[in-house]
Amino acid sequence: MRAAVIGGGVAGAASAIALARIGAAVTVYEAYNDPAGPVGSFVSLSVNGLRALDALGCLPAVQEAGFGVERQRMWSGRGKPLGDVPRGRRSGDPLHSVTLMRADLVRTLRDEAVRSGARILTDRRLTGPHDPAATGADLVVGADGIWSATRRALDPTVPEPVYAGLYSVSGTSTRTDAERPSFNMVFARRGAFVHIPAPDGTVWWSAQVASAEQPADPAAIGIDGLAALFRTEPAVLSLLGAPSSVRTGTLLHVLAPVTRRHDDRTVLVGDAAHPVGAGQGASMAIEDAVALARELASAGEIPAALTAFDRVRHDRTGKLAKTAAANRDAKTAGPVPAWFRDAFMPFFFERFYEKATGWLYDHDPGQLPAAVSGPGPGLPRHAR
């Protein structure tokens, strides 16, 4: 089977690994020379994403590229504790969430894809499954993100992403009193502020600012601008007052549910199919890669495999999209909803956290079958 993967970020690299593992000849077409980039924000992988990485055979490499985060703590803007729970896992799960820079995650997955036999071509922006470079492939995987050209090729009437009323500015600060790595989220008047002490003594942070007006360049707001926006949150001001630097700024977008995610030879994965947010974008993309490879290995034909893949992923990603919408609403809440959140969250969050998130973290992606050589079980018949 010849597979063309459009997009070389997390979704594309993970898909390349998974497809190469089942014996496909994979070519990744990446629009940028370096999809990881020299700067960027951090990503967190919860245990469901880590188990999918384990199925791909690259969990240790990703763990080495980042650091484990055991706890998740929620705070009001005034510093009132709102909840303290295991980060991205159930309390009894020995596997801990991993946080790392997005660039390091992409680089690690790309290196593994190459070791698995995939070919990665950079500076190659494909327009979709009908691009001349992809026409010789038996399978086209659209892993080209929320602004996916592959999605538009599948359905020219699909709505475009729209600004979500939030933007993020991410950076690092230097603190000598940093605690052990823990995920901290401060619910502020103007959005939310996430910060994670890293083992090297720095603090990685991301300000998620609620704004009806879309800024031209979020990164240009700078430390002084963020301090003004979060002037009523003492803990945030203390962190920004330490030596700090901005790494990146990003406008956050939402996408209406995608109703056509595949045809007989093309399939969407990751943000191209379901930009879920909720800190699960990378994990869902890696889960997609494992699920797609498993269905291709077990189905008799590619069309049947893509239909089965869409069926097994639809409900899970749809449920997570609703969770993400609720999380966005919490970050853009007005003063009255925020008062109720701060008053009642300490009584309910820790009691119901595991019940509410168990379906997400208990997911077992399964293992990939061994690769086959030439015609034989495991590859779609018409692709042999």
Results as ranks from 00 to 15, higher is better:
100 L>N: 02
101 M>S: 09
101 M>E: 10
102 R>P: 06
103 A>F: 01
104 D>Y: 05
105 L>S: 06
105 L>D: 05
106 V>N: 05
108 T>I: 06
109 L>G: 12
109 L>E: 04
110 R>N: 15
110 R>W: 09
110 R>K: 14
112 E>D: 12
113 A>K: 11
114 V>G: 10
114 V>D: 05
114 V>K: 14
116 S>N: 07
117 G>K: 03
117 G>W: 01
117 G>H: 01
118 A>S: 15
119 R>G: 09
119 R>P: 07
120 I>R: 09
120 I>A: 06
120 I>W: 03
121 L>F: 04
122 T>N: 09
122 T>L: 09
123 D>H: 14
123 D>A: 15
125 R>D: 13
126 L>S: 14
126 L>V: 15
127 T>K: 12
128 G>T: 15
129 P>T: 07
129 P>R: 12
130 H>Y: 14
130 H>L: 14
130 H>T: 15
131 D>M: 09
134 A>Q: 05
135 T>E: 13
135 T>M: 08
137 A>V: 07
138 D>F: 00
138 D>V: 07
140 V>M: 03
140 V>I: 05
142 G>L: 03
143 A>K: 02
143 A>Q: 04
145 G>E: 08
147 W>K: 13
148 S>D: 01
149 A>H: 09
151 R>N: 01
152 R>I: 10
154 L>K: 06
155 D>V: 05
157 T>W: 03
159 P>G: 12
160 E>L: 15
160 E>V: 14
160 E>I: 12
166 L>W: 02
169 V>D: 04
170 S>Y: 08
171 G>S: 08
172 T>I: 10
173 S>G: 06
173 S>H: 03
173 S>Y: 01
174 T>N: 01
176 T>K: 09
176 T>W: 07
176 T>E: 12
177 D>I: 00
177 D>K: 00
177 D>F: 02
179 E>N: 06
179 E>K: 03
179 E>G: 01
182 S>A: 15
184 N>L: 10
184 N>G: 15
184 N>I: 08
187 F>H: 14
188 A>S: 15
188 A>I: 06
188 A>P: 12
189 R>I: 03
189 R>F: 09
189 R>W: 05
190 R>M: 07
190 R>A: 11
190 R>Y: 02
191 G>I: 04
192 A>S: 15
195 H>A: 02
196 I>G: 00
196 I>N: 00
197 P>H: 01
198 A>W: 01
199 P>I: 06
205 W>S: 00
205 W>G: 00
206 S>D: 08
208 Q>S: 10
210 A>M: 05
210 A>H: 12
211 S>F: 02
212 A>T: 13
213 E>I: 14
214 Q>N: 10
216 A>D: 13
216 A>V: 10
218 P>S: 04
219 A>G: 12
219 A>E: 11
220 A>K: 11
220 A>D: 05
221 I>R: 14
221 I>F: 04
222 G>E: 06
222 G>V: 10
222 G>L: 07
223 I>W: 02
224 D>W: 03
224 D>P: 03
225 G>R: 11
226 L>C: 07
226 L>A: 11
226 L>I: 08
226 L>M: 08
228 A>K: 13
229 L>R: 12
229 L>E: 13
229 L>T: 15
230 F>G: 10
230 F>C: 11
230 F>A: 08
234 P>T: 13
234 P>W: 06
235 A>H: 08
236 V>P: 04
239 L>V: 03
239 L>M: 15
240 L>V: 11
240 L>W: 03
242 A>G: 11
242 A>Y: 02
